[in-house]
Amino acid sequence: MPAIDLNADLGESYGIWSLGDDDAMLDVVTSANVACGFHGGDPSTLRRVCHAAAERNVTIGAQVSYPDLLGFGRRFIDIDPGELRDAVLYQLGALDGFAQVAGTGVKYLKPHGALYHACVTHHDQAEAVATAAHEFDPSMAILGAPGSPLLAVADALGMEAVPEAFADRAYLGDGRLVPRSEPDAVITDPSIVAARAVAVATERRVTAIDGTHVEVHARSICVHGDTNGAVELARAVRAGLEMAEVGVHAFAL
């Protein structure tokens, strides 16, 4: 039986600004990429989400970002790699404090937004992110884009490198994600999103925006917590995977 992890970006509310339904998503996913305060997520949100995840046996991962609250971490920053390493380490420590209080810990790292894409195209930044994770905990897994420098550096450091695919994002023919600034970059039809997730898990492919099939070897599938109708999408993905007899399990325990 094929098996795959289902992850979502959570804990991104900040102050009086509420984003997504973390509790409902935690009832569906197996791994939670929790914001660490640099693109979203305030201390009380981090505490709440970590406790809710621990209660449901959902694995906690750190979704680290550029220091970019105003841009929600979706703007590239040409930051010194040493500063980026320290910023990532800072975020890991902050989230792990709340995870420990909740009786668990941070098991993996995933970059957010612009940093995620930078870890595909900027080797120095990818190395900084992976190095920070290794300094924090060499046994930590790293979740990222298949074939990216981030996963290559993680593997070279002896860490578990976990490739992922996106159920609710459109792909270009070369395997990159369609930029959010482009039309139809985000997919919100539950049946389509579920079918894409099943294709990734069982056929290792996704249909690109030009109609071609892109080969994707993924151990985890992401549904964004801030996508319109995210809970419905996640439930459709989970149901579709289970109907296709795909085991849904966390990659990190």
Score class of each variant (00 low, 15 high):
Asp184Gln: 14
Asp80Phe: 08
Phe166Ile: 09
Ala195Tyr: 03
Val200Met: 05
Gly11Thr: 09
Ala236Cys: 09
Gly15Asn: 02
Gln91Thr: 06
Gly211Gln: 14
His249Ala: 05
Ala102Val: 02
Val246Ser: 00
Ser139Ile: 15
Gln100Trp: 05
Ala195Ser: 06
Asp184Phe: 03
Arg56Met: 15
Gly144Arg: 00
Asp21Ala: 10
Gly247Leu: 04
Ser65Lys: 05
Ala208Trp: 02
Ala230Arg: 03
Asn7His: 02
Glu164Leu: 03
Arg74Leu: 08
Thr202Ala: 10
Thr104Val: 08
Ala156Val: 06
Thr30Arg: 06
Leu241Asp: 00
Gln125Tyr: 05
Asp189Lys: 02
Ala145Gly: 04
Leu46Tyr: 13
Arg176Ile: 12
Leu233Pro: 08
Gly37Glu: 11
Tyr14Ser: 14
Val28His: 07
Glu164Arg: 05
Leu143Glu: 15
Phe38His: 15
Val246Glu: 00
Met25Phe: 06
Tyr66Glu: 01
Arg196Asp: 01
Gly15Glu: 13
Val206Asn: 07
Arg85Gly: 01
Pro179Cys: 03
Gly113Asp: 05
Ala156Arg: 10
Ala244Thr: 06
Ala194Asp: 13
Ala252His: 15
Ala161Arg: 12
Leu70Ala: 04
Ala185Pro: 10
Asn57Ile: 07
Asp189Trp: 00
Ala170Tyr: 10
Val237Asp: 04
Val129Asn: 00
His51Ser: 11
Glu127Trp: 14
Tyr116Leu: 01
Asp21Leu: 03
Asp42Ser: 09
Met140Trp: 01
Ala114Val: 06
Leu143Val: 07
Gln125Pro: 14
Pro81Val: 00
Leu92Gln: 09
Ala167Phe: 05
Pro149Ser: 15
Gln125Cys: 15
Ser31Lys: 10
Lys110Val: 03
Glu245His: 11
Gly71His: 03
Arg176His: 09
Ala252Asp: 00
Val129Ser: 01
Asp23Ile: 10
Ile4Trp: 00
Asp68Ala: 09
Leu46Ala: 12
Ala62Tyr: 13
Tyr116Lys: 10
Val231Trp: 02
Arg204Lys: 09
Gly225Ile: 05
Phe166Cys: 12
Ala197Trp: 04
Asp189His: 11
Pro190Thr: 13
Val178His: 04
Val214Ala: 03
Pro190Arg: 03
Thr45Lys: 08
Trp17Phe: 08
Cys222Glu: 14
Arg169Asp: 03
Gly211Glu: 03
Ala156Asp: 04
His122Met: 09
Ala230Asp: 05
Asp226Trp: 02
Val49Thr: 15
Ala8Gly: 07
Leu241Thr: 12
Ile142Thr: 11
Leu70Lys: 10
Pro67Arg: 04
Glu83Met: 12
Arg238Pro: 04
Ile60Tyr: 14
Val120Ser: 07
Gln63Gly: 03
Leu89Gln: 13
Met140Val: 08
Tyr171Asn: 12
Asp27Pro: 05
Phe38Trp: 02
